[in-house]
């Protein structure tokens, strides 16, 4: 398989057992050359080692996506190592829920700085350096398209990601750079209290309220991200990989 052989991809938020790491392994298995970023150095190195151990090329760079200086360094180092950029996977994100009355303005600004500013900065600084025909995948959320009680910060920030994706898609179209939003449903990672050793009751609750009666896994997202990287004519689109939850439109209606 070599749908994206020798293409250079930057993947943010690749420093834990989750979508970023799984995407790194998937894109590498198709021949991509990787830069993986995130704040946790130990886990970032682990991701780098895992990719190299399966025969891929990968370099971890410590990165806070809300820092413009950090972004400039990541892009410069990518150019230094590989010479160009083809794909940007804006995956790093923050999630928490809290009643709006108990959410401070600093809380709200914090989640927006990671989810909105982080995505915006990545696109702003990468686009000028990307090869024509490249692709940006912004990992938004099902919650960028619907409401979640006590999720005002998360929903607002992901809604912004979904919306700016379309604007940048139009701006980048003249260079045939594709920009799309991926909308995961509940993915069993530490972000939602899942992953290895996660609460089985919680997992079963999520399964029962999802039409396809499955829990989403990072590898499901990685497959969709690969699809979006390799597809030449999809841009400005919203791709839901959510087991049918948005189609169902009634979260929790299946839960017993």
């Amino acid at each position: 398989m070599n749908r994206i052989k020798n293409k250079v991809a930057i993947i943010t938020g690749a420093t834990s057992v989750g979508i970023g790491r799984e995407t790194a392994l998937r894109l590498s298995s198709e021949g991509a050359l990787l830069i993986v970023t995130g704040r946790n150095e130990e886990e970032g190195k682990n991701t780098e080692d895992m990719v190299i151990n399966q025969g891929g090329k990968c370099k971890y760079i410590k990165h806070d996506v809300s820092s413009e200086e950090n972004w400039k360094e990541v892009i410069q180092e990518t150019i230094n190592i590989y010479g160009s950029i083809d794909y940007l996977i804006n995956n790093a994100g923050q999630f928490w829920i809290k009643p709006i009355s108990e959410t401070s303005l600093d809380d709200f600004k914090q989640i927006c700085s990671v989810n909105i500013d982080g995505t915006w900065l990545g696109m702003k600084h990468c686009l000028g350096k990307m090869n024509d025909g490249g692709a940006i995948v912004n990992v938004s959320s099902l919650m960028g398209q619907m409401g979640l009680p006590e999720g005002v910060g998360y929903c607002a920030s992901k809604g912004a990601v979904t919306s700016m994706t379309k604007s940048v898609a139009l701006e980048a179209a003249k260079r045939k750079i594709r920009v799309n939003a991926l909308h995961p449903g509940v993915i069993w990672t530490t972000m939602v209290g899942g992953g290895e050793g996660g609460d089985e009751n919680l997992k079963n609750f999520f399964i029962q309220e999802t039409p396809i009666r499955m829990i989403g896994l990072p590898e499901h997202m990685a497959d969709a991200i690969l699809f979006l990287c390799a597809s030449d004519y999809i841009t400005g689109a919203d791709i839901n990989v959510d087991g049918g939850r948005l189609a169902d439109g009634s979260m929790g209606s299946h839960a017993e």
Binding site: A224, V241, G243
Partner: peptide
């Protein structure tokens, strides 16, 4: 590759 995808466009 799309086993978690249904009801989507």
């Amino acid at each position: 590759e799309s086993v978690f995808m249904t009801g989507a466009e």
